[in-house]
Design a binder for these strands. Structure first.
Lengths: 151, 151
DNA sequence: CCTGCATTCATGATACATCATAGTCTTTGT
DNA sequence: ACAAAGACTATGATGTATCATGAATGCAGG
């Protein structure tokens, strides 16, 4: 019956982390959500991704990314101009305000991670990641076949 | 940095699990969400909890529980009658349809957990749970103090 | 050039998360 | 008994998740 507890613990841990992370950003007076921050950060690092590309990197779906981008533009953290090469797309550019926000949030996120992992050794975090990735792989596999898709 | 990857893996794992779990329930033709199922199950086991009690057990907040209960009532899986002892509350009762749904979902959930944890030893799941609980504790602690010092 | 198909994005519908608050009822202190 | 405090629930506002679909554009082959 420990299994019962495992996914509960998983859920609890990630949710508490998000809660703590968001609270620390709010406390710093920065007006952005962690999801928006994540997307903005990815766009800064590569301003020529499609929404689908972005969604894969941040592990969200395209619809969520579209709405997050919409909010980022609304808030003036992101600017768009029509793509010169592809009429379906818009080129995304992080604005000055967006850059300032990213700069402000960066140290907070690092400190959050540190707090969350306090007392865990490198070996432990490594193993944790391994186990989580295995669970992910198990869940991503089509049930009924041990499909050896490339990792 | 591996830290970067850890919370990403955490997020990925739990989301993929939820996705897989919901898909398997849908595939079985049962019309319920896993969150609704979770709440319904808790109510079955104890029909005299407040929404706050329930929210603590399923690790959601009270507002979410209130809305989930509303949907469960709407769908006829849950019935309410005014509490005889407390005018603010309603006594919750799982209906026949609710019971049938619970019965239908139970084996699916067990199978899902098994699939998700395939290839993990008991020791590994135990350690995983321990590490997750530590992260939770770290995040639940007030920032700025490593010990339990009052704020 | 045009057609069939894939890609890219937007949006509606539904559900959950979080915060805040209001309304109702209960308990407590005096 | 009464007022203050607290508990319980409902709901508005905002944001995200997921699925489905539609509209616009790009592209390859005929």
């Amino acid at each position: 019956m420990l299994n019962d507890i495992l996914f509960y613990s998983l859920d609890k841990a990630i949710r508490q982390y998000r809660k703590m992370a968001q609270a620390s950003i709010d406390r710093a007076g920065v007006d952005i959500t962690i999801d928006q921050w994540l997307v903005l950060r990815v766009i800064l690092e590569n301003d020529d991704l499609t929404q689908t590309d972005i969604s894969e990197r941040v592990f969200k779906d395209q619809a969520s990314v579209a709405r997050i981008i919409g909010l980022l533009v609304l808030r003036g953290l992101l600017a768009t101009e029509p793509s010169p090469t592809d009429g379906r797309r818009a080129r995304l550019r992080v604005t000055e305000a967006g850059q300032r926000t990213l700069d402000a949030v960066q140290p907070i996120v690092l400190s959050n991670r540190q707090q969350a992992l306090a007392g865990l050794s490198e070996a432990e975090t490594t193993q944790l990641r391994l186990l989580l990735d295995r669970i992910y792989a198990n869940c991503a596999a089509k049930s009924g076949s041990q499909d050896g898709a490339p990792s």
